[in-house]
Design a protein around this nucleic acid. Structure first.
Length: 433
RNA sequence: GUCCCCAUCGUCUAGUGGUCUAGGAUACCGCCCUUUCACGGCGGCGACACGGGUUCGAAUCCCGUUGGGGACGCCA
């Protein structure tokens, strides 16, 4: 089983979405299940409704999970496992308070050495532990750092070897008895029989910790890992959830099609025979091991290009955009000159608004009268001839105001095409100008 | 600071020792088309970070430097 494990603590950004896509694709390629696990272990940070939002987005992107679970539903198991580790002396109770630890962290920083847990509580005698427990002193549970190096092979990045010092004796159960991320994650991956974990590179240093947890528990089935290079913003820094470009919601609002976003995120860091493709097509030729090992910058221009390509593929544009089908031809014209759905909508909606530019106001009024008072010819050429003759307007002074009457813009598509597309409702439109 | 990862056109990449005066896409620029703006067609600009090795031969292998990124939480 493959899994996507988002936390409901913020908006989904493209890095998360990319991870979901790759997990989904590999699950399909291998005929394995795709699990979505909501990582809601931090009560403080969970945002009400974010889980539903994430699930809705996955559906929109056609990344349909075989099952959805909430990590908080397994707390009792996590606690049981922590108890097990305690009994096996692979974990210990730690009474150090946060203030104390923060001081140590600062000290380490000042002395320019990496901070590691002091080990203070590891050697507490059972009598001392009993005593402190009776005093109701708050405590956490830490796993003992491993005795040997933790080695693993990443499917994308190759071999890794972490020393016990790097893994450290870290917290697995908080003072409120809830599991920390690494603990819950390691156990759930084991519980749901995850075969391969595909996630962002920022999790690389969590991997030895999670392996160590399962080792300590005696789980010996190997879980493979593939850490994807992260996506950088235009400045070359890690995308933050606050950045517009990074937010999936924002891209959707800007009129990027889900199909184009998926296409772009799969293409990023890869190279295939064709650049424009669907999710289903990608399942055919995607190869996880061929992903680039270096981080890639997010390029909205390339996304725009792909969006144009995917917009061309929309068969019933008026229906897709939720407009009456009589506008199909006009919408197609706007599509040809737009990069996003939003752009099409804006151009289309401007057609039904009052004129906004006064440069050709007089010409517009003359033309308006001429158009409204006469029958419209089938042929644009005849229409043009007549209008030009009766109004004695020509050149720029004819075509610019004429285009303005039609679409409320001085520049844009050829009037001949617009005329043909809009003829059935052209007079109505001209009236509103 | 410590540890880890990465390094080819602005951007995404092809390239696995000779086929590389480095290929494609996108962006940009120009021309054509067009009474406008786009689309489209054609063309152009544009990169192996640097320094040492190894080798007959290096974008490709090794070492170093530099640069960039990530991780160092009772966040995920």
């Amino acid at each position: 089983m493959l899994r996507f494990a988002p936390s409901p603590t913020g908006d989904m950004h493209i890095g998360n979405l990319r991870v979901a896509i790759f997990n989904y694709i590999v699950a399909k390629q291998r005929g394995e299940k795709f699990l979505v696990r909501i990582e809601d272990t931090d009560k403080e940070r969970n945002i009400e409704g974010k889980d539903k939002e994430i699930l809705a987005l996955l559906e929109l992107f056609k990344l349909i999970p075989d099952s959805v679970v909430y990590q908080s539903g397994n707390f009792h198991i996590h606690q049981q496992m922590a108890k097990q580790l305690l009994d096996k002396k692979k974990a210990f109770v730690c009474f150090c308070d946060e203030e104390e630890l923060n001081k140590e962290r600062e000290k380490a920083k000042k002395e320019k050495r990496p901070y590691r847990y002091s080990g203070k509580c590891e050697n507490l005698s059972s009598d001392e532990v009993e005593k402190l427990l009776k005093e109701k002193k708050p405590f956490v549970i830490r796993i003992k750092k491993p005795e040997n190096n933790i080695k693993f092979k990443d499917e994308i990045k190759g071999e890794f070897d972490f020393s016990p010092f790097e893994v450290d004796s870290f917290v697995i159960l908080r003072k409120d008895y809830t599991p920390t991320y690494n603990f819950a994650c390691a156990i759930d991956d084991m519980l749901y029989d995850i075969s391969l974990v595909i996630r962002g590179e920022d999790h690389l240093s969590n991997t030895p910790k999670q392996i160590h947890i399962r080792n300590s528990l005696g789980y010996d089935k190997e879980i493979k890992y593939a850490h994807l290079p992260i996506i950088l913003n235009e400045e070359g820094k890690k995308l933050s959830k606050r950045e517009n470009h990074a937010s999936v919601k924002w891209l959707l609002e800007e009129g990027f099609m889900p199909e184009a976003i998926v296409n772009y995120l799969i293409l990023l860091g890869n190279s295939f025979e064709k650049e424009v493709f669907t999710l289903d097509e990608a399942i055919e030729f995607f190869d996880l091991s061929k992903i680039s090992r270096s981080p890639a910058k997010f390029d909205i221009e390339k996304l725009k290009f792909l969006n144009k390509e995917h917009m061309k593929r929309i068969e019933n544009l008026s229906e897709y955009l939720g407009y009456h089908k009589q506008y199909e031809e006009l919408l197609k014209i706007f599509r040809d000159e737009s990069a996003t759905l939003k752009e099409i909508r804006e151009k289309f909606e401007a057609v039904f608004e009052k004129a906004k530019d006064d440069e050709f106001k007089n010409e517009r009024e003359i033309l308006k009268k001429e158009i409204l008072e006469n029958e419209l010819e089938d042929s644009y050429d005849e229409f043009k001839k007549r209008v030009s003759k009766n109004t004695s307007l020509k050149g720029k002074k004819l075509f610019m105001p004429l285009r303005e009457l039609l679409i409320n813009q001085k520049h844009g598509a050829e009037i001949k095409d617009l005329y043909k597309a809009m003829k059935p409702y052209l007079k109505e439109v001209v009236k509103t100008r």
